[in-house]
Design a protein around this nucleic acid. Structure first.
Length: 780
RNA sequence: UGGGGGAUAGUUUAAUCGGCAGAACGGGUGACUCUGGAUCACUUAGUCGGGGUUCGAAUCCCUGUCCCCCAGCCA
């Protein structure tokens, strides 16, 4: 078979649509601002203590993908700081998996263990700066001293050792003078920090263990939180992308880089890890499945490991497409298995030649076909809709096998395969009719006697329609094969979510592997390369198992089944999803509580609240302003030369507070009275509220006087019909389709039109007037 | 009950710093078919709840609810 090659290019039509995400937004902003001189350097930092899975593929695609898109580079760095769990076996498998996925780190292969000396020097630097100390508390004591999430920790009695003593102790730790656990090096940050990770995090621990790369050179090893940011800095990483559970660690990351590294510093950003329905993704759980023998190994085709997916026959392209489609965001999510299946099918549909294989054979005897005759029929490898050439010969003879499922003695309505007295098309061959059903003593159907219509080879049967087409093989020529069908490994969409007294193992699917030992495949496959991916027509996509299949004993894995809209009837899936209904509860919000407390503690604020109510402000506005002395001061000064205090409160609370976020009202580049005068311009109808926001933006930037900015930029309100008429006519003329849609009933478009007019006038138009004019024009 | 994150169709994800809520997968219907596949067409369905600001809110303000992460000398 030369007509098709097993590695065909994937479909090209989706190469263009790259999903945007917040990571790429940040990177583009940094490029635009020149933060790193336009450089983009990312890294993929696995620990060599396990196999990579499809969740890692998401991270790999992100890190390598982003680097490629912005002409940067991506480093492969093994985060090997824990000698007790790591092994060279894992680094090889990880490298192979990344290469298989199609990514290349070039010369940028690094190991955190290569940085041990530099990291050690950083640690000494911290000690010399008085920012780290050797602690001699026991492990249990350290835990006890750390406090809890609600109670602050206590400082270790060793916290204030002198720099000299710390240095001496740390050097002797390195020299191997102390047993495991005798001392640790800790950062001196804050034992009462609300962020647990900042309560003097441990930087180094003593571990007299053999490291797979550094051997016995070291007996102290850096912790992740210390090694990771500094390794990033050493490699001049710009964007350090990791998963959401490291959000709290970013504080240490920043603390260390700010104390030890000159700018520009690497920055850490977090995205959501991938969760896939009906499988588990944690290293610990995968390890357990392997070690306890629930699966055959790390490359068991039911596992989400890249080794497993690869053995199953999934292509790297399908996985990359999948990673593209799922996107990158900050919400914890769980992707449906159907999406992965879709990308696999979509990829395989285009690249897999079609052949026939009968999984569960049922003997068919063509009674009107001569016993010694064999016809070698031409059968194209590709269906009509795939623009590829090539075919093979399939033998047709008196005795055939068809799929047991393709015959029913008493078929339900809508079934259009074989049944007593009915006809069916044999794929690439003749139409046959079932004349007789042969059964054994137990009443099981063991064979069918059929007759074929010699007129129907490559031709429509005359005078009747045959709806069904089924696959088949010649009994004498077909090759015996074992076929392994895989289903989801778990019966529960989220196996991590366990009921009382159960573990994730209680949700294993007992039918996740089904072995069919009596399958028959057409003889042509014997000539193909063993890594050929096929579509077994009407069944699914298959590949020979690279471990167990041999030419004389074929074993096929089902990569994925075809979509099956016939047997979808019983697709009532057990769910286990859904967002719980939010229930109204009764608890005091902390922010509003804080404001109430502030008033209770301050007669001035309490008085302000009453004063505002008397002024006519709503309770809400009065509450917000009077909860904070700065706001009161700001408001009181701004309101002095203004009649409309309610409008001022609106602008202060709903606009200004939103713009400045956490900044102080009193350190703004403009005075409260400037703000008051700005609001007065709105109140007096001198400018539109849209313009006012522009003015405010400028004032926030560089201060200034609102009236002057209005005059300078010519922002006076356009409030007469004449002046707006041409702009409106122009906008309507430019969007005839929208006008038609509006008139056809899509009135939501009014916002679009108002927006267009506002944009055309740079926000100067009176929006209310615009709206009424527009509505009048559009009505006619 | 501290701190840090998050909430848009069933699922995943968009929406040019307030201006048409859009896509993919899934579901449904139909067309086509020598694969009950593929393809095509149509369709279904959403801004966590409650207030407020605005001509206009997924986006801004207030408030409530729910989910995730952190008390390893793992990463």
């Amino acid at each position: 078979m030369q007509a098709h090659s097993p590695t065909t290019e994937p479909r090209a039509d989706r190469a263009s649509a790259k999903p945007r995400d917040f990571i790429r937004e940040i990177i583009e902003r940094d490029i635009a601002e020149g933060t790193y001189g336009g450089q983009v350097v990312t890294r993929f930092p696995p620990e060599p203590n396990g196999y990579l899975h499809i969740g890692h593929a998401k991270s790999i695609c992100l890190n390598f993908g982003v680097a490629e898109e912005y002409n940067g580079r991506c480093h492969l760095r093994f985060d090997d700081t824990n000698p007790t769990t790591e092994d060279i076996e894992y680094v090889e498998s990880i490298k192979e998996a990344i290469r298989w996925l199609g990514f290349d780190w070039g010369e940028h292969l690094y190991f955190a263990s290569d940085y041990f000396e530099q990291l050690y020097q950083f640690a000494e630097q911290l000690i010399k700066d008085g920012k780290a100390y050797v602690d001699s508390l026991s492990e249990e004591e350290i835990r006890a001293y750390r406090g809890t999430v609600t109670e602050p920790g206590r400082e270790s009695p060793y916290r204030n050792r002198s720099v000299e003593e710390n240095l001496d102790l740390f050097r002797r730790m390195r020299a191997g003078e102390f047993p495991d656990g005798a001392h640790v090096l800790r950062a001196k940050i804050d034992m009462s920090s609300p962020n647990m990770l900042l309560r003097d995090p441990i930087l180094y621990r003593i571990r007299h263990a053999h490291h797979y790369r550094t051997g016995d050179r070291w007996c102290i090893y850096p912790m992740y939180d210390f090694a990771h940011p500094l390794s990033d800095a050493i490699e001049h990483i710009t964007h350090s992308l990791c998963t959401l559970e490291f959000e709290n660690n970013r504080a240490i990351y920043d603390w260390l880089t700010e104390n030890l590294i000159d700018p520009p510093r690497p920055r850490q950003y977090e995205f959501a890890r991938l969760n896939l329905d009906y499988t588990v993704m944690s290293k610990r759980k995968l390890l357990r499945l392997v070690e306890e023998g629930h699966v055959s190994g790390w490359d068991d085709p039911r596992l989400p490991t890249l080794a497993g997916l690869r053995r199953r026959g999934v292509t790297p392209e399908a996985i990359r497409t999948f990673c593209d489609i799922i996107g990158v965001a900050k919400v914890n999510s769980r992707v449906e298995y159907e999406l992965l299946e879709h990308t696999i099918r979509d990829d395989l549909n285009y690249r897999s030649p079609r052949v026939m294989c009968v999984l569960r054979p049922l003997k068919v005897i063509i009674t009107n076909y001569p016993e010694d005759r064999v016809e070698w029929l031409d059968a194209p490898y590709w269906p009509r809709d795939i623009p590829k050439e090539g075919s093979r010969k399939v033998p047709f003879a008196r005795e055939l096998f068809i799929e047991q499922d393709d015959f029913m003695e008493d078929p339900p309505p809508g079934y259009h395969r074989l049944a007593p007295g009915r006809e069916v098309r044999l794929r690439h061959s003749y139409v046959i009719r079932c004349d007789e059903v042969i059964k054994d003593e137990a009443g099981e159907v063991v064979a069918l006697h059929c007759t074929y219509d010699p007129e129907t080879l490559g031709a429509r049967p005359r005078g009747r329609k045959v709806k069904g087409t089924i696959h088949w093989v010649s009994a004498a020529h077909a090759l015996p094969a074992e076929v392994r069908l895989y289903e989801r490994l778990f019966i529960k969409a989220n196996p991590d979510e366990v009921e009382e007294g159960k573990t994730f193992l209680d949700y294993l699917n007992p039918d996740s592997l089904q072995i069919l030992r009596d399958a028959r495949v057409e003889p042509s496959v014997a000539d193909d390369p063993p890594d050929t991916r096929y579509q077994f027509e009407r069944q699914g996509y298959f590949i020979q198992d690279c471990v167990d299949s041999r030419p004389e004993a074929l074993v096929f894995n089902r990569i994925v089944a075809l979509r099956d809209s016939w047997s979808k009837q019983a697709a009532a899936t057990e769910a286990g999803r859904g967002r719980p209904e939010p229930e109204p509860g009764s608890r005091e919000g902390t922010a509003s509580e804080a404001r109430a407390r502030a008033r209770a503690a301050s007669p001035e604020l309490a008085a302000a609240y009453d004063r505002y109510l008397a002024m006519g402000l709503s309770e809400l506005d009065a509450d917000i302003i009077s909860g904070d002395p700065e706001r009161v001061a700001f408001f009181d000064e701004a309101v002095r030369d203004l009649e409309d205090s309610k409008l001022l409160a609106n602008w202060l609370n709903n606009v200004l507070l939103g713009e400045i976020q956490d900044a102080s009202l009193l350190s703004l580049p403009f005075s409260p009275s400037s703000f008051g005068r700005l609001v007065a311009l709105v109140a007096g109808g001198t400018i539109s509220s849209v313009s006012a926001k522009q003015v405010l933006a400028e004032m926030l930037q560089k201060g200034g006087d609102p009236e002057a900015i209005v005059e300078e930029r010519g922002l006076r309100l356009i409030g007469d019909e004449e002046a707006l008429a041409t702009t409106i006519a122009d906008v309507l003329a430019r969007h005839p389709d929208k006008v038609a849609a509006y008139r056809a009933g899509k009135t939501g478009l009014i916002g679009f039109f108002v927006g267009q007019v506002m944009r055309a006038t740079q926000g100067k138009a009176d929006p209310r007037l615009v709206r009424t004019l527009l509505e009048k024009r559009l009505a006619s």
